Computed example of a mutant assay.
Amino acid sequence: MSLALAVLKKGEGRTLKAGGAWIFDNEIGSVTGAFENGDVVMVHDFDGYPMGRGFINMHSKIRIRMLTRNPDQEINEEFFRQRLKDAWEYRKRTVDTGSCRIVFGEADFLPGLVVDKFSDVLVFQCLALGMDRHKEKLLLILKEILAEDGISIRGVYERSDAREREKEGMRKTKGFLGEPFDTFVHIEENGVKYIVDVKDGQKTGFFLDQKYNRLAIQKLCRGARVLDCFTHTGSFALNAGVAGAKSVLGVDASGLAVAQARENAELNGLSDRVEFLEADVFDLLPSLVEKGEKYDVVVLDPPAFTKSRSSIKNAVKGYREINLRGMKLVKDGGFLATCSCSHFMDFELFTKTIREAARNAHVRLRQVEFRTQAPDHPILWAADESYYLKFYVFQVCREK
């Protein structure tokens, strides 16, 4: 059966031609032939030049998500097997695979699919209709690929409960894919033990993208007094504790997250040195500054303050505020680790915002290093949405 054909308008498809994976609704001139939403269609440029094949969804502003640039490539089980095998082989070469992101959507040429591995549990997330229709097949293939390396998966949980699903005309969903299992999963990363709640934790249960950034602060925290803001389930705080910090205070507004962080501290035998406080960081930081508190290391790992271009201005105010307060709490010669996980808060804007905060705090920053997301979240150039995490480490100087 021949595929339906989508033809781009003249002058459109710039992102696609630069290497991106998305074609938006206003870039398409016509679609001919029979299809259902979620089907694979052929894509041609306005002049008939073949651009490849992708999933179409008339409910989504991202009208087509490209799967291949080869117009002759069949999208079948063999295609998905090779894509998944390539993704797994890449992780084996670049990261600790005990717990890692196996598939990162468009950056692994599997648009709309996210798969995280936590020890012997997989968490599946399908954010695109076309990929959602294949999830059972994808799961079976991935289990077979892991089994070839002697990895047995004891359970799979679906976390397709992100708002992006609604933009695709789908309902949010979550639950077991297969037999039920204990959804509190024990993992170890950088020598730190965690209990990951894959059922009700944020996103897929744990933020794997900060793995090596957490490791990077360990050397700065030996013998230090550390403040970890937006600690979630305690990951940066616990890395500081394992590294030999003198004392650590982790802060988060979520009582559920703080309870889990305390449980993680106990799991690592750190309850005597690593404490957690349920509080709003925006309220707490000014009060700590007013009290004259000083820390050797301050970590700022906030949630994304903006998920759209329209709210960037307010996000900039938020990032400037927490960085200004954070810098004032770092003792002279101490260290600030600060990051943004918002794609819309790009590198230039984030850097400018930190520079303004430093000027207002009357400190001089000495950059130790700049980092981004772990390699299991690869950045696909021309797919801007795949580059979202910016992570700076600075030495804060006052009297130099």
Rank of each mutant, 00 (worst) to 15 (best):
Glu278Pro: 00
Met51Asn: 00
His377Gln: 13
Val121Thr: 15
Ala240Asn: 03
Arg359Pro: 01
Gly223Glu: 05
Gly178Ile: 09
Ser99Ile: 11
Gly130Ile: 03
Glu263Pro: 00
Ser119His: 13
Asp384Asn: 09
Gly38Tyr: 03
Gly223Arg: 07
Val192Ala: 10
Gly155Asp: 02
Ala382Gln: 07
Glu148Ser: 09
Lys313Ala: 15
Ala257Thr: 10
Cys126Pro: 01
Arg371Glu: 12
Asp47Leu: 10
Val297Lys: 04
Phe79Ile: 05
Asp228Val: 05
Arg159Gln: 14
Ser310Cys: 05
Ser247Trp: 12
Arg171Gly: 14
Glu136Thr: 10
Asn360Met: 14
Glu293Pro: 06
Val185Gln: 04
Phe394Leu: 11
Gly292Cys: 04
Asp39Gln: 00
Val196Glu: 10
Asp209Cys: 09
Thr97Tyr: 04
Met66Leu: 15
Glu166Ser: 03
Glu74Arg: 07
His377Cys: 02
Glu348Lys: 13
Gly333His: 10
Val31Asn: 08
Phe347Leu: 13
Pro111Arg: 07
Arg225Val: 10
Asp209Ser: 03
Val7Pro: 01
Val316Asn: 08
Thr173Gly: 07
Ser308Pro: 03
Asp161Leu: 05
Phe124Glu: 01
Tyr319Met: 07
Glu158Trp: 10
Ile145His: 01
Phe370His: 15
Leu67His: 10
Asp283Trp: 12
Asp200Thr: 08
Arg309Glu: 14
Gln218Asn: 08
Asp108Cys: 02
Pro302Ala: 09
Met327Pro: 01
Ile102Asn: 00
Lys199Cys: 08
Lys193Ile: 07
Arg159Met: 10
Leu267Cys: 08
Pro378Glu: 03
Gly98His: 13
Leu140His: 09
Gly11Leu: 12
Ser386Asp: 06
Glu188Trp: 02
Pro375His: 09
Val393His: 03
Gln82Ser: 12
Val192Trp: 04
Lys203Trp: 13
Arg53Gln: 08
Ser311Lys: 13
Gln260Ser: 12
Ser30Glu: 14
